[in-house]
Design a protein around this nucleic acid. Structure first.
Lengths: 202, 202
DNA sequence: TGTACATCAGTGAACGCGCGTTCACTGATGTAC
DNA sequence: TGTACATCAGTGAACGCGCGTTCACTGATGTAC
């Protein structure tokens, strides 16, 4: 192992190889470890083992990096929801519940990243890559809701309702956990807040 | 008028009178005008017309001010929901819808303050004043939901569901507006996302 | 009513900090011939 | 295969900025007597 990697390891340290990717990963790690305020260009650079001026060659300032990380977050988010769905039964109701579980699980395990993806004042939500990644996530949820659409009026209404429910539940749970004390939000099972899925079944 | 206030105006400028309150108001204004990043101790002090070291006599650092402002936000939030409710018909369904309208209207018109209240990493959500203010807001919503509780299991479930729905809808609308383009979130009426209130009617 | 004194609230200078950004530079890479 | 050269990616020093915080201070307030 030592021998086989030595050639790579001996490679001149001046070029990183894939610094762009390393900076994204560093950013995600910093978010997880130190929260939103912990994510700065200088710290990302340090974590990637590179001088603090290096990121300028790869991202359009801090906002550019934040936007890229948010887009990456949406990719991971989408993957997790799909993974959960594929592990569930074929029943549409079970599939939607699995997607919802994936949604909440991502939000819970990636609090600061999730907040960056949905409510940062520095992320450029008009960025086309971010928009594309975010649309894919939305599509997974929309597909899961499709069997439950009822009537032309409620076509978008159903997924918006479920999405709002999940986004709100995730945010409020987060706050409840931060407040520390027993909170009405605690111990409510997912099924209890997905109202009457069987009623929605067309 | 000039004469009647001159005595006050002539008062020595060394003492502010109610700097604590002025700093809170300055903070709320800065949030509205410059977003989360615009709210700093120094800027609050400047806006209150006082040296930047003055706030130290009134708040326990920036986090203390943020926490106090969040608490104040919950007071305004509660007032607005109550106001909306009192202007509506006596019908429980109309009253709940009025509360929801108040909720969303506050979130929409006080974006950064709302975010501070619900998802800041610097606010101390364990603070007792904040907890009290936030509980009052929760109580308004819970009271509005009370007529719609069905069964012992769904006792808390109903208000959690409505609350999540509102919090999520508010957050996602915010992001949709930020993204600028046409979004599935746009033009969904409140009634469409409050699912089957008539079904919940006991 | 007047005086002495403790307390309080705001001042202004100074501190160190981490930040994003700029810049001339250098070493590595890749391409043309 | 070798050489010249343009391009690229990372360096390290330096910049100015706004931030929170500290500190000795001073002027105003309020209280005891």
């Amino acid at each position: 192992m030592e021998n086989s990697t030595s050639q790579t390891a001996r490679k001149a340290p001046h070029h990183h190889g894939d610094l762009r990717e390393a900076l994204i990963q560093a950013g995600i790690a910093l978010l997880a470890e130190h929260g939103t305020a912990g994510l700065t260009l200088r710290r990302c650079a340090a974590r990637a083992g590179v001088s603090h001026a290096a990121p300028a060659h790869h991202f359009d300032g801090l906002d550019g990096l934040l936007t890229t990380i948010a887009a990456r977050g949406f990719c991971l988010f989408t993957e997790l929801m799909i993974e959960e769905r594929e592990q569930s039964a074929c029943d549409p109701r079970q599939q939607l519940l699995a997607i919802c579980r994936g949604y909440l699980s991502f939000a819970e395990n990636n609090r600061s990243l999730y907040n960056l993806m949905f409510s940062s004042e520095r992320v450029n939500y008009c960025d086309s890559h971010l928009d594309e990644a975010s649309s894919k996530a939305y599509q997974v949820l929309a597909d899961g809701c499709a069997p439950f659409r009822h009537g032309p009026d409620g076509a978008a209404g159903t997924e918006i309702m479920i999405w709002s429910l999940l986004h709100g539940f995730a945010g409020l749970s987060q706050k409840a956990r931060q407040a520390g004390h027993r909170h009405p939000m605690a111990d409510i099972p997912l099924e209890a807040i997905i109202p009457h899925l069987e009623l929605l079944d067309s």
